[in-house]
Design a protein around this nucleic acid. Structure first.
Lengths: 192, 192
DNA sequence: AGCTAAGTGGACACCTGCGTCCACATAGGC
DNA sequence: GCCTATGTGGACGCAGGTGTCCACTTAGCT
């Protein structure tokens, strides 16, 4: 599951590293990438030095923390590809990705930002997008997806979706669901 | 045009006040409400004390700076109401409001934030929204606007639209236009 | 149990934001 | 031209972020 580093860590260091990652996941999800490194250290019950020793930059920490989300994202798209009706698959991808981004504010930031140094994220992002493109091509052929749809449209809508993170969690959830519904109709071909 | 204060200012103070407002407009539009007060003071060529003396809080400054935009916003909706075809009027309102918010990042913040103390903005906001509601009712009756449209949907989309402000100006412009087009389709009734 | 290298947390120095205070400058009536 | 109320900019103290250093602790081999 977790990659083994060349240098094996001391047991207490290993524990601390795990706790830091766990805290980072919680706080990134709740507050987004803007959460202070200090806050993550405090939440994990370690000093700042420990955090910086393990993860010199926030991007490095984020990349590790979001490994699971990245896999989830790919899984969602794969399931969409596996759905018999490509349009239904496409719709479920939109809805579920919105849901994922809703629950994880930091991941949205990470996914859209394309940090130059967070290679892992950028790479799997491209891979996932390639799958979405395939799905979109099928849904177009099927006639239900508007002909002029482009991948950029999806990125625009995901970027916009992030804007919803300003309000409180309850409002945000309602807003996100409604947003997904509207986006699906926006992408639908004109005539039924 | 500008309201006369009960206390008349000294001529140099008046000049400074004007320059501060002008700088605030430029910087709020470009950077959003997050721009530091100091930056506005520097841009206007005055010290921080001068700025704080005229506008004790950022909200007060914003309210004055955006007076013109608020009027523009109302004008857009009024023109939409005056359009013979209510659906076309509704669409043009969406497109033009997106355009307005695109050019003025700070105004978007101000419009959506509902500061407790910025009464002027909140008030005209409600007024504008009431007009939009009227327009929406007509467009629904006309059959082109989806029956389950609510005012909240528009707020969701405007909030989302703000998310587009992360990218560079050129990309942002393209994205905003495309976003407006998609939103219009999202709001359209199912059958042609 | 003792030793040592790896690991740690608190202190530190730096930056940038905020709002306020006060000694000086100056507009504008005389 | 002078005098004074009004207006001003720079300096100040505070809060909260960043990354780094170093004297102490401790895991784990012997």
């Amino acid at each position: 599951m977790t990659e083994q580093l060349p240098q094996k860590l001391r047991s207490d260091a290993e524990d601390n590293r795990d706790r830091i990652l766990e805290s980072a996941r919680v706080l990134f999800a709740r507050e987004g990438l803007t959460v202070p490194m200090r806050a993550i250290a405090r939440h994990a019950g370690v000093g700042p030095a420990t955090l910086y020793r393990r993860f010199p930059t926030k991007q490095l920490l984020a990349t590790e923390a979001f490994a699971e989300q990245i896999r989830a994202c790919q899984a969602i798209v794969d399931e969409g590809l596996a759905t018999p009706d490509p349009w239904q698959g496409f719709c479920s991808v939109i809805e579920r990705i919105c849901e994922l981004h809703l629950q994880n504010r930091g991941f949205t930031d990470a996914f859209l930002a394309t940090y130059p140094d967070a290679v892992d994220i950028a790479e799997s992002r491209e891979l996932t997008l390639k799958s979405v493109a395939t799905l979109a091509r099928r849904a177009k052929a099927h006639g239900r997806l508007r002909k002029d749809f482009e991948l950029a449209d999806l990125m625009i809508m995901l970027t916009a979706h992030r804007g919803l993170h300003v309000s409180d969690p309850a409002t945000r959830t309602t807003a996100s669901r409604r947003f997904a519904t509207l986006v699906v109709q926006a992408f639908a071909a004109e005539h039924a």
